[in-house]
Design a protein around this nucleic acid. Sequence first.
DNA 1: CATGAATGAGATTTCATTCAT
DNA 2: GATGAATGAAATCTCATTCAT
Lengths: 222, 222, 222, 222
Amino acid sequence: MFKGSLLEAMVAHASENKKPTDKQQKILESAIRIFAEKGYTNTSTSEIAKAAGVAEGTIFRKYGTKDNLLLSVIVPFLKDLFPAIAEGVFNEVMTKDILSFEDFLRAFLKNRIDFFNENKEIFQIVVKEMLYNTELRNEMLPFFLENVSPRIAKIINVFKERGELADFPTRTIQKMVFTFIGGYFVSNFVLLPENGTDSVDKEIENIIRFVMNGVGTGKKPH
Amino acid sequence: MFKGSLLEAMVAHASENKKPTDKQQKILESAIRIFAEKGYTNTSTSEIAKAAGVAEGTIFRKYGTKDNLLLSVIVPFLKDLFPAIAEGVFNEVMTKDILSFEDFLRAFLKNRIDFFNENKEIFQIVVKEMLYNTELRNEMLPFFLENVSPRIAKIINVFKERGELADFPTRTIQKMVFTFIGGYFVSNFVLLPENGTDSVDKEIENIIRFVMNGVGTGKKPH
Amino acid sequence: MFKGSLLEAMVAHASENKKPTDKQQKILESAIRIFAEKGYTNTSTSEIAKAAGVAEGTIFRKYGTKDNLLLSVIVPFLKDLFPAIAEGVFNEVMTKDILSFEDFLRAFLKNRIDFFNENKEIFQIVVKEMLYNTELRNEMLPFFLENVSPRIAKIINVFKERGELADFPTRTIQKMVFTFIGGYFVSNFVLLPENGTDSVDKEIENIIRFVMNGVGTGKKPH
Amino acid sequence: MFKGSLLEAMVAHASENKKPTDKQQKILESAIRIFAEKGYTNTSTSEIAKAAGVAEGTIFRKYGTKDNLLLSVIVPFLKDLFPAIAEGVFNEVMTKDILSFEDFLRAFLKNRIDFFNENKEIFQIVVKEMLYNTELRNEMLPFFLENVSPRIAKIINVFKERGELADFPTRTIQKMVFTFIGGYFVSNFVLLPENGTDSVDKEIENIIRFVMNGVGTGKKPH
DNA sequence: CATGAATGAGATTTCATTCAT
DNA sequence: GATGAATGAAATCTCATTCAT
């Protein structure tokens, strides 16, 4: 299952302009909801059709295959997710009076948390399939590493030179920060999505404090 | 799929002492390998049978259902994973001359990294299924939260009182540390399992440094 | 599939005089081309619609059913094919100074080869469907045997009486000659349609020579 | 449909030795009967299953795909059909005191008519699919032209040198004789299979007489 | 008139599970 | 105990046909 290129799908998707009909919208919504809950493989097209109130054939008329339905769900999301593609995010984040690494983190986290809150279910689908689906993982990971990773490295270097970040290897800093922020996103939006974060702003400050200073006091036991 | 209680399975498993026959061993090994690679749902019993060199019927003779085969794979792992169950880990970790939180972290990470390295594939299965399989997730999460979480909290409180950990709410510290360490385990053992960590000991020191001090220098931009 | 009478269709068709619209023409052309290549059953109406540049509904608005589209393709052809219906051929062939059986064969072959060359694709469709489609075969074969066969017999008898044809049973002569000429048409127009016959006239002479004299020399080995 | 090589299938088939079970035998028999009557595409696997008295899944357990079921039907037949592969036929036909071309024809026709009578339905399937299925045709035709055709040419040359065959180009003789004999087989075994040939031996003599001498008397009209 | 979205019956295929040998 | 043939329910997919716009 899932033969073929994610990239191709993303390019192909760009050229689709037609407005979806009511039923098509319903299909997408149902697919997103059920894929998010049970995972792609555990969801049958008949289940989606029933939930969307359409005939099963209608799904295949529009999307051709179940695989392609999945792509139709995640491709628009991925195009926004990877800042390297949707050129906007980093520019937006970096241009606005970013004076410190903390400011950058704050802007970045705000931006992505808002995005994931708006697309919580698709994010769940993507995370689940990235772990579950070998082919999809093999397409998405290099994509991320090649396009997003270098941009982050550049930003880290800027702040290292300003003396705001410790003099560890850039790769190490990046790995630590990403592991933590990635883990935060996954645990908050996928694993425990119902735990309403008390206050997003307060949560963001917690994250920043942890990333910058850790949880220690600097005191060693005597 | 996956009807029934994980707990029951764990209890039931405790009473099973019979050594697995040769064929059973082969079946388990093949199941673990293929489940880990492609996920439970994407793996057919006939594929496992072929890989194990047994007849398909043999799997069902031994394990009854495919679901039960999955349980037979993950239950022994879970019993070791949750220190609350296999009483050993924390005792072992805490008794040996633990003088500081860093020492505790070091011992804990070493212990779990060794365990996951030895059981990498089963860990992959558990993580994937925990995300993918609604029923399994709903059984495992409370289990974890009720049994493991309070013990961690106790330990954090000890070191907070000793002044080694910042005076944040225990829940916050726990969440941050667990999010990071969990993220680390998942990204190293599931997402990018082939990235051989240069040196485990060096990696552990990096983790400790990040958890304790973050990546900042304390300097603010003027 | 294909319920209903070929004859009815042929009669019904006689009364249709309306010129096909542009779209109808396009649909017919595409249907002929694709039916000829892949066979009726292996061709979907959506494929035809796409090739014709019309909406799928348009085909059904014009032709009602896919079966009827097939009939619309082959009925006009059949009306020309069976001389008993399109009264022209035999008259034309027989009246023009036909002095010998060879002359008759020559005129007949020229006439039909020209016709099949002009309608190669429809001939392919008819042959394929006659073999493939039980109902169509059961309608066409008796039709041929009742209407065409007796006329041929009559002609053969004429030339037998003139002493040009061997004194075999008329049925035998007819079967031999028809098997050969039918085989020739099928192998040249259906099986190997791209083999451009070097020269039609030369080919015709070869056929006549074979039909009249075979390939032997009359010498028996001693 | 029908992707993949006929040759591969023929080679693969050679290594299959296991005896078919009762149900498998029933499946093959039903498939042969219904494919022969209605053609491959017009036959559904559920129809075959019903006719064979098995569950539909049983067909796919053994044959994997409907395509492969077709191959399982025709491959053994083709291996006997092409004398170049089943080395026997020509040797058998040529060694037995063949004194004349007529003798050769007689032996050859007897041999093939017996074979087709025993495998009438599979022959029908092969002929129908060869016309209907582009892929299959493109695999079978070159196969025939390369392996069978040259052997026939050699035999024709032998008898041309002995003066038994007319001094026409070998290719022309071959084409005429094959068109006729092929047409004879198709019309007797596929098109009109119920027409019991009065007497095979008498029929063979008719064919030989036609091939050698045609239907003419040599007399030209004055 | 033409369109193309929608349908639903039916086709192929998969696969966990059973059971006679 | 082990086998693997057989099952049948359910999954994905196809496609001729209808019908509102």
